[in-house]
Simulated scan of single mutants.
Amino acid sequence: MGMPSFPKPNNLPEAARLQRALAAKVVLQGSLEGLRYIAALDASHPTRFAQGSGVSVAAVVLWDCALGQPLQVAIAQIDESALFPYVPGFLSFREAPLYLAALAQLAQPPQALLVDGQGIAHPRGLGIAAHLGVHLDIPAIGVAKTLLLGRPEGDLPKEAGSVIRLMNENVQIGWVYRSRTGVRPLFISPGHRVGMEESLAFVRSLGGKTRLPEPLRLAHLAAGEARRKGQQSGQMCCGPILPGPV
């Protein structure tokens, strides 16, 4: 599992060119029906005000869809100063090395990725889910908490399960989905080797105790806990941990 090509941190035109080249390889067809093992990915960084110092963490939860439970949690940590800087629209260059390091620790290769971030709902069609999906040539779906690109096609009802299309001009780039009554919506977009309808159906099938699908909720908690522990100890590492209470 090699690292993707990376531009120099100060060369955003080159970064944009790389994104467009990879976006051209995205396949928006495929179903996740019947697959068993997925990897849910989330990252935790120091605040923007503390950029350049502290620890950044990626957490990957290996989830068994047949059993409806996690099998493994893997953590990758690195000094913040070693990462691509925070630039909106270029976060995949910042987070991909962390995610790849964590994915490499899994005992069971995942059949698909569920990523906290964008799929194709991105100014150049390559959010973190699409970037990782193309690089690894594996189905991937982005589930973002915030809107980066596009507009909801109408008003989203407040009831759980409500969904409307996310549009960029006249092209659908994802879904606006309310997972629980009254909570803020999620923005779902396919990343690679999965269709538009299929990406929504799969996220819905996962359920969850909170706003996030359960595998992503666990990854979010694991990433936050690992970063707090890393900051307190001053240690950086890459290594597996066992799922703890969540």
Rank of each mutant, 00 (worst) to 15 (best):
residue 28 L to D: 07
residue 243 P to L: 13
residue 118 Q to P: 01
residue 147 L to G: 08
residue 122 H to R: 09
residue 31 S to Q: 01
residue 62 L to T: 10
residue 243 P to Y: 11
residue 209 K to G: 15
residue 167 M to N: 05
residue 246 V to A: 13
residue 35 L to S: 02
residue 205 S to E: 04
residue 2 G to Y: 01
residue 180 R to D: 09
residue 55 V to G: 05
residue 95 E to W: 11
residue 142 G to L: 07
residue 162 S to Q: 06
residue 58 A to L: 06
residue 31 S to F: 02
residue 147 L to S: 10
residue 219 A to Q: 07
residue 227 R to L: 06
residue 59 A to S: 14
residue 102 A to W: 08
residue 21 A to D: 14
residue 236 M to H: 14
residue 145 K to D: 03
residue 126 L to P: 05
residue 110 P to I: 07
residue 70 P to V: 11
residue 211 R to E: 10
residue 21 A to W: 00
residue 129 A to Y: 06
residue 235 Q to D: 05
residue 131 H to R: 03
residue 15 A to D: 04
residue 246 V to P: 05
residue 167 M to L: 09
residue 156 L to W: 05
residue 63 W to Q: 02
residue 119 G to R: 03
residue 201 A to H: 12
residue 210 T to V: 05
residue 126 L to N: 03
residue 141 I to M: 08
residue 46 P to K: 08
residue 39 A to E: 06
residue 109 P to K: 12
residue 18 L to C: 03
residue 51 Q to L: 01
residue 246 V to R: 11
residue 221 L to S: 11
residue 146 T to S: 15
residue 96 A to V: 08
residue 179 S to H: 14
residue 233 S to T: 15
residue 92 S to R: 01
residue 3 M to H: 13
residue 77 Q to M: 15
residue 224 G to H: 15
residue 107 A to R: 15
residue 71 L to V: 15
residue 14 E to R: 12
residue 72 Q to H: 13
residue 204 R to D: 06
residue 30 G to M: 01
residue 101 A to I: 02
residue 32 L to R: 09
residue 174 G to E: 04
residue 232 Q to C: 00
residue 113 L to H: 12
residue 184 R to I: 00
residue 93 F to T: 02
residue 149 L to Q: 05
residue 3 M to R: 10
residue 113 L to P: 09
residue 51 Q to N: 04
residue 236 M to G: 08
residue 239 G to L: 12
residue 63 W to N: 04
residue 121 A to N: 06
residue 178 R to W: 13
residue 5 S to A: 11
residue 221 L to Q: 13
residue 108 Q to C: 10
residue 125 G to C: 04
residue 92 S to Y: 01
residue 116 D to L: 01
residue 187 F to W: 07
residue 104 A to W: 02
residue 109 P to M: 09
residue 236 M to F: 14
residue 230 G to M: 10
residue 46 P to E: 06
residue 203 V to N: 03
residue 152 P to N: 11
residue 98 L to A: 13
residue 208 G to T: 13
residue 236 M to R: 12
residue 99 Y to H: 15
residue 66 A to M: 11
residue 112 A to P: 02
residue 3 M to D: 12
residue 5 S to N: 03
residue 156 L to G: 10
residue 155 D to I: 15
residue 59 A to H: 07
residue 135 H to C: 02
